[in-house]
């Protein structure tokens, strides 16, 4: 396991600073994502985990610092090169983000038709094979509105892998799933990572599932990397913050009350 976590990094984030308004979302963050492994980015809500994915895919630009994917500086790429890089990436959004006016088959076929000139029969075979891989070939004719949350996510997964990407990014893939769907998604993530030799990045705060699926975990809080390591290493980590997050404790370094002015004063003081 630990070998996978320290394997050669394919995505390198160096000295990344990203600000929104006056708030620094990331403050000199360094992250290495190993090739061929499953890396989980974890942290409390609002720490900018999704923002990190957008920075890696070049949808946002950092204030300073660098993101290199397979040696390519994402932010310095020309539009054409950036789109070429994005074709090597698959991304799965929280709710699936399927195109609502296309059926399941057409949703999966969409990137194929957009990017290639394959014949209709090849598109059909490719799409059906991909849907078979996620176990939803039977739902090919359904509309996205007729799918359950877990099924929609698996269709989106099929759409994300249909172009044969090298990288796949999952944005909160485990939220709001029943145990059966959750199990199916977890198994799929593992199997696809293994069989397609993908580099996987999962953004999540679901501690239990991530421990099960990830080779390597980064804990992020307040714009800093708090801890990094295999699930085994994190379980042994004695840092107060890591324990609070991993064990879900109310009190700890992360306070229940957001710091503010004096409570009594705030209640009676004149508002400026």
């Amino acid at each position: 396991m630990s070998t996978k976590c320290s394997a050669e990094p394919v995505i390198r984030i160096r000295d990344l600073v990203f600000e929104r308004g006056n708030r620094a979302i990331f403050d000199h963050v360094n992250i290495d994502i190993p090739r061929g492994g499953i890396t989980a980015i974890m942290g409390p809500s609002g720490t900018g985990k999704t923002t990190l994915l957008r920075l890696i895919t070049g949808q946002l630009c950092p204030s300073s610092g660098e993101v290199r994917v397979d040696g390519l500086p994402v932010q310095a790429l020309r539009t054409r090169e950036l789109y070429a890089l994005r074709m090597r990436m698959g991304m799965l959004f929280q709710e699936g983000a399927l195109l609502t006016d296309l059926n399941v088959f057409e949703n999966v076929a969409f990137p194929v038709r957009e990017h290639t000139d394959l014949s209709e029969s090849m598109v059909r075979n490719l799409v059906l094979m991909t849907l078979q891989a996620v176990g939803l070939r039977g739902a090919a004719e359904r509309m996205p509105a007729e799918l359950s949350g877990g099924m929609a996510r698996r269709v989106a997964l099929a759409r994300a892998i249909v172009m044969g990407p090298e990288f796949i990014f999952y944005d909160e893939p485990f939220t709001g799933l029943d145990p059966i769907s959750l199990g199916a998604v977890v198994r799929l993530i593992r199997r696809l990572n293994h069989t397609l030799n993908l580099t996987t990045v999962i953004v999540s705060h679901d501690v239990g599932v991530v421990e099960e699926v990830a080779d390597c975990t980064y804990l992020i809080s307040d714009g800093q990397v708090v801890a990094r390591g295999t699930p085994e290493e994190l379980r042994r980590n004695r840092s107060e913050w890591v324990r609070q997050f991993m064990d879900g404790l109310t009190e700890g370094p992360v306070p229940f009350h957001l710091p503010g002015t004096d409570y009594a004063r705030a209640l009676i003081e004149e508002r400026e």
Binding site: Q59, R86, M89, F93, L98, L99, T100, P111, H115, A156
Partner: peptide, 9 residues
């Protein structure tokens, strides 16, 4: 969906 399109290149 718009973000999904962007992510598909």
């Amino acid at each position: 969906e718009v973000d999904a399109m962007v992510s598909m290149g």
